[in-house]
Design a protein around this nucleic acid. Sequence first.
DNA 1: GCTGCATGATGAA
DNA 2: TCATCCTGCAGCA
Length: 267
Amino acid sequence: MPEGHAIHRFARLHRSRLAGRRFSAASPQGRFSDGAARLDGRRLDAVDAAGKHLFYRWEGGLTLHVHLGLYGKFRVFDGDPPAPSPNTRLAISDHDVTLYLSGPADCSLVDPDEEEGIRARLGPDPLADGHAGAARFATLLARRSVPVGAALLDQKVAAGIGNVYRAELLFLEGIDPRRRAASIDDQTAHRLWERTVAEMRRGERAGRIVTVDPADIGARSRRGLDPDERLYVYHREGLPCRRCGDAVVRHESAGRWIWSCPGCQPA
DNA sequence: GCTGCATGATGAA
DNA sequence: TCATCCTGCAGCA
């Protein structure tokens, strides 16, 4: 679940539901006991997102850094929460609301230097920077010798893109993932960035990744798209392309699977 | 009940 | 390029 759209959505939801409250904090799993003890009894002031990273600002100048990685999950409950699972890394609660965090790749208190170090490793963020990130993205992309599919997963090139978006964005722009990043001309790179901004904003709003234009599937459902109608190529190997009918293909890119349409994304 | 996978990232080789 | 870490759950027997 957690590409940048989900992280920014968590920041927005946690900001509105949790910020301004004073929490008791604990680490049921025990692996964040020291940190939880320092947060216990403090007020959460603000929540910021950068790429796939979250920063929770606490009373007294403490900052909690959370990166969900592949497995991390938040659960929020109003009123009486169920018992936390044994792997709950962090639990914060007051009388009205409870947040459980399990499986994060990182959950730690960071000082300003450490936060700066994390941010320094990130390229422009489509959701935080919007159009303003385009030029920097184009410059970074042009400097990469790797295939564009791999470059898009590199958080130093664009912060927040993950395996679903990279495949879908390259489909939408008609770019074969195996083309060298440096071969993408400046205008195409700008278009790719603007597409990224638009699609990730859409995903942030929807709470899920949806890239299809309803016109391409013959928009029939008033309830919205079925789960397997939301994407063009991701996990659709062997199925006909929604645009041209060619069979979607799967190949490896940066150690992960990527999907593309040979007809819509010519080499 | 067990297995394998998943929208991530890092450090060593 | 490989191994490793972080969990939960769908899909199977």
